[in-house]
């Protein structure tokens, strides 16, 4: 499946009158961006271990030292925090799930993808593989 389909689902839920719908939209936005990057890397034989994979992906992107990938890591981590609040924090202030915030999450996902594409999956995979070899996490 094309992971970017998650953003279409996010779009379908963005104007939901139910808070649960708007929370789910934020969650789908994150997974669109996360899976887009994970799939691109996997196609180039760079895999992120399943355990703590979300945190590790951000760490790997940041560790490349590439300015744009560091920004991707930062934005992805921020969007993930929005998702954790949407998925787990039932007592959170509903303002965090307003239609504007939902649109912000979708735009954040688009920006993450654009930034990643601007570097190129091949280059990103090479830089992460270099980091993993240097730190003996990959043969």
């Amino acid at each position: 499946m094309d992971p970017w389909q998650f953003l279409l689902v996010a779009e379908m839920l963005r104007d939901s009158e139910l808070e649960a719908g708007r929370r789910s939209s934020i969650s789908r936005s994150y997974y669109a961006a996360y899976n887009e990057i994970i799939c691109c890397l996997r196609e180039r034989h760079v895999t992120v271990p399943e355990r703590d994979s979300h945190e590790k992906l951000c760490r790997y992107l940041a560790a490349t030292g590439h300015e744009v990938l560091r920004a991707v890591a930062n934005d992805l981590r921020g969007l993930r925090d929005d998702r954790l609040r949407a998925d787990y924090e039932m007592e959170a202030d509903p303002t965090a799930f307003s239609m504007v915030q939902v649109a912000r999450a979708m735009n954040q996902a688009r920006r993450i993808r654009q930034q990643f594409v601007s570097v190129g999956a091949v280059k990103a995979a090479e830089l992460i593989a270099d980091y993993l070899r240097r730190t003996h996490q990959m043969p």
């Binding site: 703590d52 979300h54 954790l84 504007v100 649109a103």
Partner: peptide
Amino acid sequence: PESTDCEYLRVESRVPGGM
């Protein structure tokens, strides 16, 4: 809640604005 050893500070800024 999804990681084995990860905690952090969330710094949330409230900024007026619209779509």
